[in-house]
Amino acid sequence: MDERIDMHIPLKERLCFADYINNGGKSSLFIDFNPNEGGQVGQVIRYIHDTDSNKVIAPSFEAYLQHFVRKNSRTEDERERFDEIKIL
């Protein structure tokens, strides 16, 4: 588990803004308003239902959107290379 996430706070107390299916499993994206020490208010969490795991994927919703726009405004070859770059 990601130490920046307070696991004592239920998911329903975070803002879910996307659900999607990948590799046959369901994932959801949440905005976290109550992070642990070391985390940031507004960080974006990816929750994977099948493994019941959480991970911070961006320090803020703005950073997540900027990454999403940059990634999707490239050619397919550029996107493959861009996927190797992490947001954090």
Rank of each mutant, 00 (worst) to 15 (best):
R74F: 05
F17S: 03
N54E: 12
E3S: 08
A58P: 03
F30K: 00
R70G: 08
R14M: 03
N54Q: 15
H8I: 12
E13F: 10
F68D: 09
C16Q: 07
V69S: 07
D50I: 15
G42K: 01
V41M: 09
D83M: 11
H49K: 15
F30L: 01
N22V: 10
P35E: 03
G39D: 00
D19K: 10
G24H: 08
Q66Y: 12
L65M: 07
H49L: 14
E3A: 10
I21K: 15
E37Y: 14
N54D: 10
S60V: 01
H49E: 15
F17T: 05
L88N: 08
A63I: 04
A58M: 04
R46I: 06
S53A: 12
S73P: 04
F82L: 09
P35G: 03
E37V: 12
E3T: 10
Q66F: 11
K26S: 12
E76G: 06
H67L: 04
D32S: 01
K12S: 13
F61S: 06
D52A: 08
T75G: 02
E78A: 05
R4A: 02
S60F: 00
V44L: 01
R74Y: 07
Q40R: 11
V41H: 08
N72H: 13
K86P: 07
I45T: 01
I9V: 04
F61V: 05
D19Y: 11
R14I: 01
G42N: 03
V69Q: 13
L88A: 11
F68V: 06
G38A: 02
K71F: 05
Y47S: 05
I87A: 02
I87S: 02
V56I: 10
V44C: 00
E13N: 14
R4V: 03
M1W: 12
I57P: 02
L29V: 02
R70M: 14
Q43T: 05
D32L: 00
R14F: 02
A18G: 06
S28V: 04
T51W: 10
I45E: 00
D19G: 10
Y64A: 01
P10A: 03
I9S: 00
A58E: 02
E62H: 14
L65C: 07
V69H: 11
R46G: 02
E62M: 07
I48S: 13
R4H: 03
L29F: 09
V41W: 07
H49S: 14
K26F: 11
K26H: 11
E78S: 06
M7C: 12
K55C: 06
S73G: 12
I5K: 00
N22L: 15
T51P: 07
H8F: 14
K71Q: 06
Q40T: 08
Q43H: 06
V56W: 01
G39N: 01
R79K: 11
R74M: 08
E13Q: 10
G25K: 14
G24M: 03
